[in-house]
Structure formats: C-alpha cells, structure tokens
Design a binder for these strands. Sequence first.
RNA 1: GCGCGAUUAGCUCAGUUGGAUAGAGCGUUGGCCUCCGGAGCCAAAGGUCAGUGGUUCGAGUCCACUAUCGCGCACCA
Length: 554
Amino acid sequence: MKNRLKSHLEQALRQCYAQGRLHSGEVPEIQLDVPSHAEHGDFACNVAMLLARAEKIAPRKIAEELMAALGEGDGLWRKVEIAGPGFINFFLSNRCWYGVLDDIARAGEDYGRCHLGAGKKVQVEFVSANPTGPLHIGHGRGAATGDAVASLLEHAGYAVDREYYINDAGNQMNTLGLSLYLRYRELLGETLDFPANCYQGDYIRDLAAEVVASEGRRLLDLTEEQAVAHFARFGGERILAGIDDDLQAFGVRFDRWYSEQSLYDRGEVERGIELVRERQLAYEQDGALWFRTTAFGDDKDRVMVRSNGATTYFASDVAYHKEKFDRGYDLVIDVWGADHHGYVPRMKAVMTGLGRDPEDLQVILVQLVNLLRGGQQVAMSTRSGEFVTLREVIDEVGRDACRFFFLMRRSDSQLDFDLELAKQQSNDNPVFYVQYAHARVCSINRAAQEQGMQPPALGEVDFDRLVLDEELVLAKRLAQFPETIAAAAQSFAPHRVVFYMQELAAQFHSYYNRNRVITDDPETTRARLYLANCVRIVLRNALRVLGVSAPERM
RNA sequence: GCGCGAUUAGCUCAGUUGGAUAGAGCGUUGGCCUCCGGAGCCAAAGGUCAGUGGUUCGAGUCCACUAUCGCGCACCA
C-alpha cells in the first residue's frame, strides 16, 4: 500500500519535471510516515520540503504542483491535502484498508514475510557460552535475542543459519578438568585446598559425584595430568549436553555447533595467521606476533602468538571469522554480552584487514538481566558460583514468559526481569495480555461454531458491514505488521515486534469490550469474525517470530 | 587517564532512522460485569526529553562541550 503510494508520488514528480513545472531534476527517496495524529491522514510525505532548497521555492508551492500531478490515484485515497510547512497528507479509502484483511486471509502464516533479504546468506552466532558451567539468565537473554533476530531475518527473506561457537580450546578446559578432579578427590575422603580460580559451583561437585558412582576410586591411579585431561573431556561433554538440553527446553535449535578446537585441528588458525602475514599486517615485537589492527581503527594492536609460542583467543577468533566468510555468508551477526563491547572495533578492524566490508559483520550487544522477585533484587555472582540458571527460570515462569520478557526491551539496555510478574496471570503481565488476546479470538470462534457459524473464508465478507472507527483502526494496525517485521529485521530489534503486539492486543481487547463480534445480524457477524481472525493470525505470526506460543485457550 | 554506552512522566521503558500538538505499561485517582472468557475495558492527572551552545524550513533524534551513572581498557578466554 505504502509502495503503491510511493510510486504514485515518484510518477508525479517525474511528470512535474517533464512538464517543466519543477526544474532541479532531483529525485530524493520518497518517504512516507504514519503521522502521530489522525487528522494528518494515514500517510504523510515530506518530499516537498526536501526539494525546497534545490528548487528555491516555498515547499507548499512544490507540494501544490505535485498534488496537481497526482490526479485521482485510482481510488487508493479519498483525500489528499497540503498541510503545515508543506506536508502532503494522504487519506486512504476504507475499501483500501479493508483490503489488507484479504491479504492476511490469503497469506495466512506467511503474512508478514517479505523478500528484503533477497535470499542472502546470513549467519547468526549466539549463546556460545563456555562449556564450563550451566547457562545462566544472561545467556538466556542472548539465546532469546539471537533466536528472534535469526527468525526476523528469515521472515525478511534471508537464508539464516544459527551457530553456537564452543570455546573448547585453551586453559579454561584445564581449569574445568582440575576443578572436577579436585572435587572427585575430596569426595573420596581427601581434604585439600580448593583453589579460588577453580569453578566453585555445586554442579562441579555433582558431576564429580557421578564419576565416583561410575568409576569408583579407579581414577586416583592416574597421574594428575592424565586425570585433569580425562575430567576436562568428560566435564566438557556433559556440560555441553546439559546446555543443549536447556536450549531445547527454551525452544532454541542450532544448525551447527562449531568447535574452537576444530579450528586448530584443521590448521585454520595457522592459515589465519599466514593470511595476516601475507597481507603485511603482522609484525613481531617482544617475541610476540601482532596483528596491526590499529591500521583499521582499533586503538591498540593485538597479539596473535604470544612470546611463549601459544596462540591467543584473538588468533582463533580471526580464523573463525575468516572461516565464516569462506563458508559463503554474506552477512555475519555475532551476539555478545555488552561487557564485550570493547571488542567490536578490533573485530571490525579484522574484517577490513581481511578485505571485507566491516558492515558485513554486525555485533548485537546484549545487556545484563537484573533479576527481581516481587520488586526485590535477587543476588547473583558468577564468581562464587551462586547464579540463577536459565533452567531454573524456565522451570519457574515457563518458556513463553521467559522468552517474552527477555525480548521486551532493546537488547542493549539493561532489563529488569521480575519472576513474580512473569508468573502472574493478569493484565499486569504483558505476555499473558498478548496471549490472551489470541485465546480470546479462538474462544469467539468456538462460540460461533456452537451457533453453527464458521469463520468466513476469503471473499465471503461484505466490508461495508465494518462501519466502526475501531474496526478501521484495527485494520490499519494489521496493515503495519509487514513493515514492522521488516524494520525490526533491518535494525536487529525484536523488541519492536513486542511493542507492536502489545498495541494490537490492546486495540483488540478494547474493541471486544465495547462491541459484540457475534451479533444478531449474520452479515455483520461474518465481517467481524473475519476481522477478529485476522487479528488472531497476525498475533500468532508475531508470537512465532519471538518463539512464544499462541495458545487457543488458557 | 582513555574509549564505548546511557540520561524521556513518580517507576520501568518506547519513540518508525530529522517531521506537525511527546507515547505506552505500572503506580495514583475515579468509573464499567443480565452480555462472545472481567485473565478484560473506559477516563483523568502526570513532561524544561540531564544542561548549555550549534547545524536547518524543522532536533527527543545529528554535532560540540559539561554533569551524573554504567561498562570496558591482558602476550586471559
């Protein structure tokens, strides 16, 4: 609809130039905004103001010329006017708005999808928590965000892969192995000092206890080095399996689990370092090998190979990102904790250094979750091992509320997550409010069915029966859904979908409360059922993007 | 010290990428059930968009400085 208006405007502008009524020849991008006030119409265009400078005449004058060239617009609008400093305001015809109901009925599950991405390959890498402990709620927010962004991009026509990067190389796995080994020995009767830099959480003891149960004292015969290696492998696998379980319970599925260690095993890290050398971006200093990232905007060069010969995490990250693009992705998105924001410039520098556009790498930063219970802060500290796990929160408030709450705010701003509120079944709780709107339509359908009526199919509805303002407002809101998805996808911002749903649900609840869908008049009833079911379809599609269920009864 | 980010209603936050008179939810106050699910709805009050200057037809939005808060500044991962 917006696009149709746009092409009308472009045509009018070209006509003005052709007829010599305007002279500059400039064709700016036509912008159409939905004004905040209804008296300014359905869409407002500012092109006359943009042209004012080049044309050197008053914007209202330009707007007049454009309006004259616009003509009737074959019934798309019922009124066009010039207002304020030179806005061109369009008032669309009701028939045109109710046409979106047919679009929705026709498209069904696909309503809201678009081809913005043109099939480009995108990888979204997220969670990627170290396999040294269970997922906590911070990871949960990353999981919800990454999954929703991936889903948004799918809806916008990108070919998306979800990937989890496993940091299974380096000394943290040794630390894990050592932590388990020491707890194992403790459980078998030794008293020893458990080092502060080892993992303190109870899950370490639990895992060690499993080993005691299955292996007994046998592993005491190993050398410490052998034992640590054994425990590291065992612990890593078990913890990763637990993470996978938690993510499945959360409804997140990855296309690929990518091991950092495999980069070493296949020589990718070596190849990455070679490439940096070939491009003359490496130099040696103090016995270490450095990547000259300062050449591309980083404020410090970065070490790839330490003076003791060990490669850094940065080196494998270079290799990993190089390898992502080798796999043919056009766009790579990393979802990171916001405390890693300092790493963005260096990774962008790596992109440039490797000959890619830095825009091909997008980093989404996810801020901390502040967990509350009835307004009171829940204490958390990863260091001491006292943290609230994702699993605990899913078990307590349910997957739907959990995902919804994680996505309610822009990902880069801190989030208050109140467990009591998330469990509450009232209008204070936004997730129930939205789901309830969906269930309510289903309930109306059931009531209609009992009276022998089916939700009407395409073409069975007389839109002239929709005469209420609220019905028009609902139709307009429904028409906005595809652009909401597109805009949210382009800015990697799932929270926009949340806000959209809350508005739509509020409008529907309000409509429902004031009017009966099922009336004495069969034609009116049909039209209203049709409208209500379009609301249901859009709510369901929106919830699906976020990974939240759309229940038929609650 | 340097860098990144934030600052919008009593609280928690949006703000369609620079548009017209600033938007929700919660909280507060006052209303609404003979009715398809009240798990809901309606209404009112509430604002110097942190401050100062700048850019222009037009600034919550862009730029500079200031203040306050948060985070980051390893040959760790």
